[in-house]
Design a protein around this nucleic acid. Sequence first.
DNA 1: GATTGATTTGAACGCATGTTCAGTTAAGGC
DNA 2: GCCTTAACTGAACATGCGTTCAAATCAATC
Lengths: 195, 195
Amino acid sequence: MARTQGSHSDITGPRLRDAARSLFARFGYAAVSMRQIAAEVGVQAGALYNYIPDKQSLLYDLMKTHMDELLVAYDTAMQPGAPVDRLEQFVSFHIRYHAARPEAVFIAYMELRNLTKDNFDQIEALRRSYEARLENILTAGTQNGSFQIPDTRIAAMAVIAMLNGVNTWFRDGGRLSMSDVEALHWDMVRKSVLR
Amino acid sequence: MARTQGSHSDITGPRLRDAARSLFARFGYAAVSMRQIAAEVGVQAGALYNYIPDKQSLLYDLMKTHMDELLVAYDTAMQPGAPVDRLEQFVSFHIRYHAARPEAVFIAYMELRNLTKDNFDQIEALRRSYEARLENILTAGTQNGSFQIPDTRIAAMAVIAMLNGVNTWFRDGGRLSMSDVEALHWDMVRKSVLR
DNA sequence: GATTGATTTGAACGCATGTTCAGTTAAGGC
DNA sequence: GCCTTAACTGAACATGCGTTCAAATCAATC
């Protein structure tokens, strides 16, 4: 068991994922070759197969990890409270968490069609699980009368779609700060479920 | 000048675009080969080059046509009226128009990164032009006091993002009719800009 | 029925693809 | 200072890519 310390394995593995994430986000899974990824890592293409079984698994791994971390981060961050408070937390969390890792978010959204059926089903289940957390908040608020929402499933999808839009245009150092963006969206979301 | 009538040119051209639209939407531009498109058309790959200079132009043509038709359809459908009425028209038009052509919409959104810089700039300008039409409604309503919107640019982006979300899940014959979807979204959009 | 020219074929071009694997390198344990 | 073994190279594999083009096909015109 030589090379337990100073092994490149600890370095190349993460670097492979970083390179793949960056390249997939920029050019798309289908348009990026294993040789391009290897070049970014500073290694020959064959060496990548010490870390992944194939290209498809690499994509799935990136998406699975992203979704798992999203759910853990959400469940950790979320504080109990009235539905309106939890909705505000959701908006704030969603915008900030996604703005902080645009590449992983972009891949998780754009590359779904490049997953095999089995892998797709796994990721889709995690996504639905995240959407259900928002819908639960909306349902609770509707039941206690603080929200007026005819269809909580559609409202959840609409809110997430609106918040996802931020990632398509937000850039650090732009006209608006993260707090501005958060406040503007919370204002719209809050009003859209009231009355 | 033989074959002016009954020429296959009138048939193969549109069939090429239809096949490309369908395949690009399903598998992505980078993942679809000219040979696949040709097979769908019922022709050899070489024949396609009587109708397009190259694969990139085919993608650009699909996106450009889609955006042009969108703007014409919008400007034709839109009736004058109070900002709140025009906003309702926008919501209705956007949802219906996009739901009716999911493939073209999907491509126009997902394949932007596969355009060359020049082509990208062209499409982006058309998209901004469409967004500006919504922003103008929001600005008019803010100025005459019927809306209360702190930032009309962000509000326009947020509304379009919310409405675009419909295309990711709506299917004919599902739980909700097109009218249901329209009403639910108009309810949310209307409230989000009020007060 | 010969002519014309639009339309398509089918093969070829050079190059890139994901993946495999025998061989090379080098770092830790003894 | 040898030995082990993780890590990597570099070439090879079969296959596919976008595109070109001489030759074949075929429908309308004369």
